[in-house]
Simulated assay, not measured.
Amino acid sequence: MTILSAEAQSVNNVSFSSKQIDILEAYLELGLKQGVAGITLQKNAGHLKLSLGTIHYHFGGKKNHGLLDSALIYVSQESFKYISFNIEQQETNANFNGVSTYIHTLFDWVSIKQHHALFWIYYFYLSTYDERSRRFNQAYLDMVHQRLRAMIVMGQKKGFYPKFTIRQTLIDQLFTQIMGSLLLASHDPNKENFQRQEKSAIAACDTLIKAMS
């Protein structure tokens, strides 16, 4: 189980009403259709047939996170829940393959939730536009790094990997390989390309881990 930092835990503890989730899902769907950078509140309101006042009611004021910040938090929560649940299901069976299990689960999530994934990749990894978003970004990156380290540790315990000291440089290299493959997959999101990029990420990460043993 991945232990969350205080910052990551604070992001994970934010809750949304069903109406807020409906608005966020529409916002993310619109980003998939028109490009993340092209989304405006006006377009989102028109897409939902809601007034700007209604969106401001749910995502404005001092007590609420804004729409963009809420989308960052929501996508973080949903991806973390999906990946955590599926990995924990595989930890106790013969299908567990260390980092390869994480990569396969991540690519499954990206394939199933493309409207989440496009936003996730665009903002969490390609954008550093303000301090608050960088804070959310760093909290999520910390979770990803912790997850990769945990996958190697579990693989060592199960005899899948030999014992070696897990250095941060290895985690950084694994992360870079996985993100590179995800970016290539997102540019051409068809089944064959997803499978090709997933295999490429698994092979590259296996090579990096074997080089440490």
Results as ranks from 00 to 15, higher is better:
residue 54 T to S: 12
residue 131 E to P: 10
residue 126 L to Y: 04
residue 198 E to M: 05
residue 67 L to C: 01
residue 187 H to L: 15
residue 180 G to H: 01
residue 9 Q to H: 01
residue 204 A to T: 07
residue 65 H to K: 15
residue 13 N to A: 06
residue 3 I to W: 14
residue 16 F to S: 02
residue 193 N to S: 06
residue 51 S to C: 04
residue 104 H to G: 00
residue 173 Q to K: 13
residue 154 M to A: 05
residue 178 I to T: 09
residue 136 F to Y: 13
residue 38 G to H: 10
residue 118 L to S: 13
residue 149 R to K: 14
residue 166 I to A: 00
residue 208 L to E: 10
residue 18 S to V: 04
residue 211 A to I: 10
residue 83 I to E: 10
residue 170 L to S: 05
residue 3 I to S: 14
residue 132 R to E: 08
residue 45 A to I: 15
residue 18 S to K: 00
residue 1 M to E: 08
residue 26 A to V: 08
residue 129 Y to C: 05
residue 61 G to L: 03
residue 9 Q to A: 07
residue 56 H to F: 14
residue 20 Q to A: 08
residue 73 I to A: 11
residue 136 F to G: 03
residue 82 Y to F: 10
residue 66 G to A: 03
residue 164 F to N: 02
residue 48 L to S: 00
residue 131 E to L: 12
residue 61 G to H: 01
residue 23 I to Q: 03
residue 158 K to V: 01
residue 104 H to Q: 06
residue 130 D to E: 07
residue 192 E to N: 15
residue 14 V to N: 02
residue 38 G to F: 05
residue 8 A to S: 12
residue 93 N to Y: 02
residue 181 S to M: 12
residue 73 I to P: 04
residue 114 Q to L: 13
residue 49 K to D: 05
residue 177 Q to N: 05
residue 55 I to K: 01
residue 34 Q to W: 03
residue 96 F to T: 02
residue 53 G to L: 00
residue 33 K to I: 10
residue 128 T to N: 04
residue 116 H to F: 09
residue 87 I to M: 08
residue 35 G to Q: 11
residue 108 D to R: 11
residue 159 G to K: 07
residue 197 Q to L: 01
residue 23 I to M: 10
residue 156 Q to S: 15
residue 207 T to M: 14
residue 36 V to F: 00
residue 152 I to R: 02
residue 114 Q to N: 06
residue 131 E to F: 12
residue 203 A to E: 11
residue 4 L to G: 05
residue 35 G to A: 08
residue 51 S to H: 05
residue 89 Q to L: 13
residue 96 F to S: 03
residue 115 H to E: 13
residue 205 C to H: 01
residue 36 V to S: 07
residue 74 Y to R: 05
residue 106 L to A: 13
residue 52 L to R: 11
residue 185 A to H: 11
residue 32 L to P: 03
residue 197 Q to E: 08
residue 92 T to K: 15
residue 119 F to H: 13
residue 163 K to W: 15
residue 128 T to F: 12
residue 28 L to G: 13
residue 49 K to R: 04
residue 145 H to N: 15
residue 138 Q to K: 03
residue 148 L to F: 01
residue 77 Q to A: 01
residue 54 T to Q: 12
residue 152 I to L: 04
residue 33 K to H: 11
residue 192 E to P: 12
residue 87 I to H: 02
residue 81 K to S: 06
residue 88 E to Q: 12
residue 92 T to W: 12
residue 136 F to Q: 10
residue 91 E to V: 14
residue 24 L to E: 06
residue 37 A to S: 11
residue 65 H to R: 15
residue 17 S to F: 11
residue 42 Q to I: 12
residue 116 H to N: 03
residue 64 N to A: 02
residue 106 L to K: 14
residue 119 F to I: 00
residue 118 L to Y: 09
residue 81 K to L: 08
residue 49 K to P: 02
residue 126 L to W: 00
residue 8 A to C: 09
residue 47 H to K: 09
residue 122 Y to K: 14
residue 208 L to A: 02
residue 209 I to Y: 05
residue 25 E to D: 08
residue 14 V to I: 06
residue 59 F to S: 05
residue 201 A to G: 09
residue 79 S to P: 00
residue 15 S to C: 03
residue 206 D to L: 14
residue 115 H to S: 06
residue 55 I to R: 01
residue 84 S to C: 15
residue 88 E to W: 06
